[in-house]
Nucleic acid binder design. Structure first.
Lengths: 233, 233
DNA sequence: GACGAACATGACCAAATTGTAATCAATTTG
DNA sequence: CAAATTGATTACAATTTGGTCATGTTCGTC
């Protein structure tokens, strides 16, 4: 889920932004002033910031400066009113990644958000997990076992990723069906078992004694948290 | 004296640009169409080009490609009315150094010009990749195999560059379409497959067992990171 | 206007994938 | 302990998916 932090003092504007962004499927977090924005941004949970430059109190520009000064590289889309183009100039030199002048169209904003996210995706490190001698590269959709590629079918990989995403928690077959198969359609729940079996065969050191994908009787499956490391290179 | 070449067909726009830029102390040269722009650019007297992508006749994109193909590294600021064109230029790493969407404010334009000039002071080296015995010169848009030129159609080269730009990550057919085809025409996604096939035929040692452009079933394609070296000459 | 290159697309085929039934094994329950 | 329940595994036919080829179109060049 892509998370967008909106730093905006006007309630109306914040409401509008939230509405539109959420409609597009983003998760939206709103901060009403600079300091709050700074705090939220430093939590590091947002993938993109939309920053209104006409903030009261701590100026938006200061927020920008502060963030960048601390080495925070979150992509920032700056909003500014038309006549304050001077602000824009400064924003540019400071490290805003893009900006939009008010009044702006929804489509334009969304397009820029999308473009910015796309651009920043390249900068993000690859998502890689390690479990024992197995390495799962989410970005490349590859799995290595002792450096050797393991051939996983799409369904298998998706299932594995879903289990990993819920690491430490029991996931019911129904949940897995919903997440991996997409629909609560007519897939018999036993299908999950089959794929889990196949995954174990390919990944577990000893398929009859699984250490990664554990069975929770009468409940579902669980990926053992203790076996999993997230690599952030 | 810093010299700016403006490639712009609309007289009004050209006049406005010249006015403002000259007021800022730049020397301005205007070309009214693509071919004229290409000629002027090749004279090598300009420090920066402002290029309107909505040119008649020779498309602005073609001018861009043609310039870069000839190894011309002049910094280019692209003007465009359409977001999709930005996507295209950006996705391809075609060599626009920055862009502004119309309508834009004067201050914004000037800021970008300034930023671009500053950035280009420290000349960026030519981007060249090596994959096995293949050498891909991104800036020159040429491909050599054991020193011999490989003839790639524009689409093919664009596709290759896009894949290389995402090296190590799976890229969906939709993403490739957006970046290479520009999202404009509603091209069928299977078309990507055809071009990948052609690329493999021309580049892979064994097209039936690709080592560069790998298939990620149900997901897209991926350029194998391990096969790619970036040369910094 | 002929010709060829580029290119999008549909068709066809081979190979990979996958849902399911059937069977076997383990665990729980009464 | 036997029956019942639940999970594991295997086998396989149907379907999906991707590779490739042939075709029609467009566009620029001669």
């Amino acid at each position: 889920m892509t998370r967008i932090l909106v730093v905006e003092d006007s309630e109306d504007m914040a409401f509008g932004l939230r509405n539109n962004l959420e409609f597009e499927g983003y998760e939206v977090d709103v901060a009403a002033d600079g300091p709050a924005g700074l705090t939220r941004a430093e939590e590091g949970r947002a993938d993109l910031m939309i920053l209104d430059l006409t903030l009261p109190g701590m100026d938006g520009l200061d927020l920008l400066k502060a963030l960048r000064a601390r080495g925070n590289a979150i992509p920032i889309l700056v909003l500014t009113a038309r006549q304050e183009e001077i602000d824009k100039v400064e924003g540019l030199k400071l490290g805003a990644d893009d900006y939009v002048t008010k009044p702006f169209g929804v489509m334009e904003l969304l397009a820029r958000v999308e473009a910015l996210l796309r651009r920043s995706e390249q900068m993000q490190p690859m998502k890689v997990f390690r479990m024992g001698d197995i390495e799962v590269n989410v970005s490349a959709r590859t799995v290595l076992r002792q450096g050797q590629p393991v051939e996983l079918a799409p369904r298998e990989l998706d299932l594995l990723l879903s289990l990993i995403a819920h690491q430490g928690r029991v996931v019911t077959r129904e949940e897995l069906l919903r997440e991996v198969w997409g629909h609560a359609g007519r897939v018999v729940t036993r299908t999950v078992d089959t794929h889990v079996s196949e995954l174990r065969r390919k990944l577990e050191p000893d398929a009859t004694n699984p250490i990664f994908i554990l069975t929770a009787r009468k409940a579902g499956y669980r990926f053992d948290m203790d076996q999993l490391t997230e690599l952030v290179p």
